[in-house]
Amino acid sequence: MNVVIIDYKGGNVQSVRFALERLGVHATLTSDKELIQKADKVIFPGEGEANSAMRQLKADGLDQVIPTLKQPFMGICLGMQLLCRHSEENDTPMLNIIPLDVKRFQTDLKVPHMGWNNIYNLNNPVMQGLNEKDYVYFVHSYFVPVSEYTIATADYPEPFSAAVQYKNFYAMQFHTEKSSTTGTKILKNFLDL
């Protein structure tokens, strides 16, 4: 299987590569459009700030390519948010694939929402084999609200989308690659799609 991780200088891409390696899958790290288009599976990690990430994607021409992809695609963390329409983070227009907007947490709780939290209302093949309320690792200050596309929910303190699916785009707010055995199951389910 030909798995590609999109490299757009977006932080911790190695961790995703290593997580796949632990599953016996060698993934290619690239920003090459053709390699991305030809891949069987595409993973889009992300850390950092929305505006600079969008700028980098545009510089590499990836903002034109990603929306046209048809294979199973997984966005992680900022990679989830970038797939949406707009983010409150520096008022940034995003890739506009998933018709949802990214909001900042307005809460008395600490922001970033950092650490292990449980996910529930799991209703998707990529969540297969998980138990309701399993724990995954989050680090984020912005979130995608619950919608008809939500496939896993978490609370901080209000419910938000821990994961969404829209067509072939699967998007995880938490770090699947850093979520111990639970994250590994999700990655494996995605590779098995």
């Binding site: 932080g11 850390e47 950092g48 700030e49 900022l78 970033p112 680090v139 200050s141």
Partner: peptide, 8 residues
């Protein structure tokens, strides 16, 4: 924080 994001 600007370059890499506060989260890290």
């Amino acid at each position: 924080a600007k370059r890499f994001g506060s989260q890290c």
